[in-house]
Amino acid sequence: MKKFVILLTLFALIAVPVLAKKGNKITIAGSTTVLPIAQATAEVFMNNNPEINISVRGGGSSVGIAAIMAGTVDIGNASRHIKAKELASAREQGINPYENIVANDGIVIVIHKDNNVKDLTLEQVKDIYTGKISNWKEVGGPSLPIVVISRDVSSGTFEVFNNIVLNNAKCISGALMLASNNAVVTTIATTPGAIGYAGLGYLNETVNAVKIDRVMPSKKTIQNGSYPIARTLHMYTNGAPRGLAKRYIDFILSAEGQKIVEEQGFISVE
């Protein structure tokens, strides 16, 4: 009897995932920035539709786009647009990458609460990060050396910052490289001369945000595109989404899905 129960359990463990796989599966891979959105929405979507199984993996934007081109996933996540080179090679293989914008993401330049600097230009931020400006007095602040705080070079947040602000110039080697948005905000809160950047969702009252080119970062200015350090987050499908993938992406774009997007620290699509 005991053996029988064990055998049955083993059988169930193996058989259930195999049977469940059939037909009702969506596979997703790609950007780690989009990952929390995909995970959180997939969880709710699977609760609402227990017959559907979604598997979500990270890997990075390049991995997401490569996976769509190879046909190994239904949805490829990317925190950037597809590159012309990637698009051309996809077309060659008869794949038609289709961009679904699922969220907005804005990056806020953050400084210490006691710092009286209120706004900076994009150019000044670049000069600070490349080392041309090294004291706050050069941008109208107190006489205090600037402590430059950046994110790890493989993070999605660094990628946007690098593209929009640094324009691919090298960040000074003395910059502190921290592992998370939270670490950046916590460190700035305790470091008087610090400047750093983080996703809008991580901003709190312990630090100050600065205006960039006279625009204050907010949900509204990021959605309408007037705040410069912002981007859209994407889920790529082969052709316009169909079937299950369409149901899932429609769910993300619904009011309920966009609420989850905001809970994850991103900004909803207008």
């Binding site: 205090l144 050396p145 402590v147 502190l176 921290l178 670490a183 916590t186 460190t187 305790t190 470091t191 008087p192 001369g193 610090a194």
Partner: peptide, 19 residues
């Protein structure tokens, strides 16, 4: 280190960063 030591060192030594 992050929450206590780093701010403490900034105050004591007057260095720009405690990390």
């Amino acid at each position: 280190g992050m929450a206590f030591l780093s701010p403490f060192l900034i105050k004591v030594f007057g260095i720009p960063t405690g990390l």
